[in-house]
Design a protein around this nucleic acid. Sequence first.
DNA 1: ACCGGCTTTAATGTATACAGGAAGTATTCT
DNA 2: AGAATACTTCCTGTATACATTAAAGCCGGT
Lengths: 250, 250
Amino acid sequence: MADRETDRAVSQTVRAQLALRDLILSGGLRPGERISELQAVETTGVSRTPVRMALVRLEEEGLLEAIPSGGFMVKAFSERDILDSIELRGTLEGLAVRFAAERGVSARDLEPLKECLNEIDGLVRQDPISVEAFSSYVALNARFHALLTELSRSPPLIRQIDRASALPFASPSGFVMAQSALPEARQILLIAQDHHRVVVDAIENREGARAEAIMREHARLAARNLRLALRNRTHLDLLPALALIRSAAD
Amino acid sequence: MADRETDRAVSQTVRAQLALRDLILSGGLRPGERISELQAVETTGVSRTPVRMALVRLEEEGLLEAIPSGGFMVKAFSERDILDSIELRGTLEGLAVRFAAERGVSARDLEPLKECLNEIDGLVRQDPISVEAFSSYVALNARFHALLTELSRSPPLIRQIDRASALPFASPSGFVMAQSALPEARQILLIAQDHHRVVVDAIENREGARAEAIMREHARLAARNLRLALRNRTHLDLLPALALIRSAAD
DNA sequence: ACCGGCTTTAATGTATACAGGAAGTATTCT
DNA sequence: AGAATACTTCCTGTATACATTAAAGCCGGT
């Protein structure tokens, strides 16, 4: 019912984009496989025009790759690509918090950040942390990162960060759920939350270099999570877009 | 008539994209102005479908902005936006050269870079530097930066740098021509070339932090060029996309 | 049996027709 | 005279039909 209403509200293009993205991330298409427009029309139920539109947007998003002769194929990522994408996001977020620190942030703008921090504190206080708490953490973490980048007050930078975070495995919360099954899960979350507090403190004190450095290191937690999850090979079903990873042998 | 042949070779979408981009950058449309598809059809001579495609790509490129009610408008940039975009590019290029330094680059891969450097040396040796030499510099500089980012061997990063450099005022050579009319032109070029040599040296010696820092500073030369050109208000016609800059008062 | 060329098929790129909706304008009422 | 409402007009989003081109399969020759 709500679905029915939103279905009518959003454009066919967006509907196709969401459907195709889910299909790709769920592994419905193999990396390197050509994605036929006609086939996409059948699976999404919309006509070719919005499907084409959605394909272009998914290419810009980084999930698809244009075939020289025409059309698109599902992009394949190496583990290195993913690690680089995480480092890339960390670098951009580092620039954002440096801007925030150097340019100054009002106490009023800092308040929602601190609320976020307190809510996260409430979550990580429990030991062990429930799966529901992890789920809540993902949402709060995403909100915190979004608020943080906005502190830069730099539309071009915010835009670029959004684009870099569009790849699910590069997003700030990409590997949090996968981490929930790990024994060191709570410890990692505590460290991450400490990073959060430190970066806010650095911004408050106008310490640009410190804020930038800690933000870069913060992103590297995601890289650690990925490596741990891949090594343990447990709960890999919690990893979105794992289907897009091609082994180094390919 | 190579034009006639290329016209037939490239798709209508690309043709529309190039035509519309030129139109926007030349100031044919005012920032904030809605860009009508029908009007675009008339000016480009292609039908609505490729025009629509081109509009979407130009939006992703950052030159257009989607209107909530539908359609697109020409994006307006503040001087701050442009300076931030330059700093952003510098940060990304800094990451690229850090990757290159840390991961190591073979002498073979470094060779084309050094050729580029020698060619640029030949240009900046003359005093004063001719306009033709400036023009050659732009091409060589673009080539050098492209080779440099490729040394990172990181497709996601290269992709992101390309996107960040798509905005003409953020590209490595965006303000070089505007600088050609300045009295301090040669001095700036000499400094830029020194940066080039230093960054290659740093990469060779695996000095990641040094390479990153010098690359960031190198980008800031573009910021200085922009400020000088805007203050002197001379030869502003050499600045592409100046029409997109809205004053702080707007 | 394998390779090369031809034919057929299918997929993309393009053009256009149609419907729904937003914005601007004119008119009318207060 | 001003504001609100209704109307008209234009614009976008969507669907579909057509043409061109690339790819795949088949047939024939070596």
